[in-house]
Simulated scan of single mutants.
Amino acid sequence: MSLLDRLAATLTPAASDEERRETRLGFEKIAEGQLFAEDILRQHKQIEQLFAQARSASGPAAQAAVTELSLLLNAHAMAEEAVIYPEVSENSGKTHAGMAYEEHVMTKVQLAKLQKLEPGSEEWIEKLDHIESAVQQHIHQEEGSWLPDVIRNAPLEIRQRMSVEYRNYFDRFDRG
């Protein structure tokens, strides 16, 4: 863990498993009927499953899970960055949107590094753990405040447009 990661963890400690579960339950309720939020929620669950697959696999199967995870995370990030985060900026705060973009960039960099490592090696496991922890915290922030703020504050026509645009944008990049 880098010095910046340790500093960030001190200032904003990672949510516990229980906090993440409670946040997920609340988000599942508020996301209902909001197609963009339902899509994002489904993708978050797929991302979590792919981390588990990578962790439980070995050799080429672990590498295949990481490749699939990278493809999904990149498509998901591209769609959020193009369609969702401008609305997060307007309806949840520019700081939240800025954090979201930055977290996506760092995840992409770390995933590229992970793909160069030997699956199952100590360094690979450490990198996977680091990425998973960062993604878990990012998902917690999105589901806990950023996306609920958009659902509560953005007008219906904006949310409907987001739903269509998000799905279209994601589909352009999803190769998983």
Rank of each mutant, 00 (worst) to 15 (best):
A154K: 04
K94I: 03
I47A: 03
G144F: 08
G33M: 06
A52G: 10
S58L: 04
L114C: 09
R21V: 14
H140A: 06
H76V: 10
E132Y: 06
Q115V: 09
S89G: 11
A37K: 09
H104W: 02
A154D: 08
S163Q: 07
D174M: 07
A154M: 07
R21M: 15
R42L: 09
F170A: 03
S16F: 12
I131K: 01
A54I: 01
E165L: 12
N153R: 14
I47P: 15
S133A: 11
L11P: 00
M162V: 09
T10K: 12
T107G: 00
S89H: 08
A154H: 04
S16G: 00
W146N: 12
H138P: 11
S58C: 11
E81C: 03
V83K: 08
Y166H: 12
Q115R: 14
R172Q: 13
I125S: 05
Q115H: 05
V105A: 04
A15S: 10
A82T: 05
S163A: 11
G33V: 00
D5N: 10
D5W: 05
Q49V: 04
E28H: 10
E165F: 07
P60V: 10
R6E: 13
H96M: 06
L69H: 00
A97Q: 01
A97D: 00
Q46W: 10
L71H: 11
G176A: 15
